[in-house]
Simulated assay, not measured.
Amino acid sequence: MNKKIIAAMSIVGALLITACGGGESPDTKSATSAAPQTETPAAPATGSYDPNRGEGKFSESNVTIGALDAAMAGKGKAIAETKCFSCHKTTGEKLVGPGWKGVTERHKPYWIMNFITNPDPMIDKDPKVQAQLEICLVRMPNQNLTDEDARNIVEFMRQNDGAK
């Protein structure tokens, strides 16, 4: 009985090896392995992504920051309590995502707004976000925030960082 099982497993193993490319000629293998490389999209050119601005509709020209607006910060805190605090803390401590302490000192307000309203393209392109992803291991989900929500959250982040 054991000899029959060993013989059957040997046949199955030989079939698997053959099915996984053992029967192709070297020329066929080269052509086959070259095809997926040409279909894989190229990495974005470094000049097409601005890590200081991020990717999205917000920029220096359409996000104006002045003195801290406490009413906006209050609205931002309420939104953050619902959408953000399950993954982020207001301290520097990591929860699921990184802590928020000092975020407005590390990034421009329009970069933050682009990231929280448009996280997927920035996760794919931004070197700092990719480095953070390696630490946190979880991609930030798109919370479908409005422009106003994003601006209010930035104001709350500014308040958290001691802006006056």
Rank of each mutant, 00 (worst) to 15 (best):
K94S: 07
G97L: 03
K83M: 04
K89M: 13
P109Y: 08
S86M: 13
G97Y: 07
N114V: 05
G99T: 07
T82A: 13
P98M: 13
I79S: 02
P109A: 04
G97R: 02
A80C: 10
T90K: 15
H107S: 10
C84R: 03
I116L: 05
K75W: 08
G74D: 15
S86H: 12
T104L: 00
K94C: 05
N118G: 02
N118Q: 10
W100D: 04
A78T: 09
R106A: 13
T91I: 08
G97H: 05
T104I: 01
V96W: 12
T90F: 11
T104H: 04
G102E: 06
C84L: 10
G76H: 04
K75M: 14
I79C: 05
T104C: 02
I79D: 00
T117M: 00
G97I: 01
I116G: 01
G74F: 10
N114D: 08
P109T: 09
M113F: 02
I79Q: 00
Y110T: 03
E105P: 02
A78P: 03
W111Y: 14
G92C: 09
H88K: 09
H107C: 05
A78F: 03
K101L: 12
P119S: 05
P119K: 04
V96H: 10
G74I: 10
I116Y: 00
H88E: 05
R106P: 00
G92K: 11
C84Y: 03
A80I: 07
T90A: 13
T91A: 02
N118T: 09
T117N: 03
I79L: 10
K75P: 05
K75L: 12
G99E: 08
I116P: 01
G99Q: 08
E105G: 15
N114A: 08
T117Q: 06
C84G: 07
F115E: 01
G76Y: 02
K77R: 13
G97C: 07
E81Q: 15
K108M: 09
G99N: 07
E105T: 14
G102I: 08
C84T: 07
G97M: 06
K77A: 08
N114W: 05
E93F: 10
K83W: 00
P119V: 03
C87A: 06
T90R: 14
G97S: 10
E93M: 12
I79K: 04
F85H: 14
W100M: 13
K94L: 11
G92I: 08
K101E: 09
G92S: 12
F115V: 07
E81F: 09
T82D: 14
K94G: 04
S86C: 11
Y110V: 04
P98W: 11
T117R: 02
G76D: 03
W111D: 01
G102H: 07
M113E: 07
T104G: 00
P109G: 03
V96F: 11
G99F: 09
V103D: 02
A80H: 02
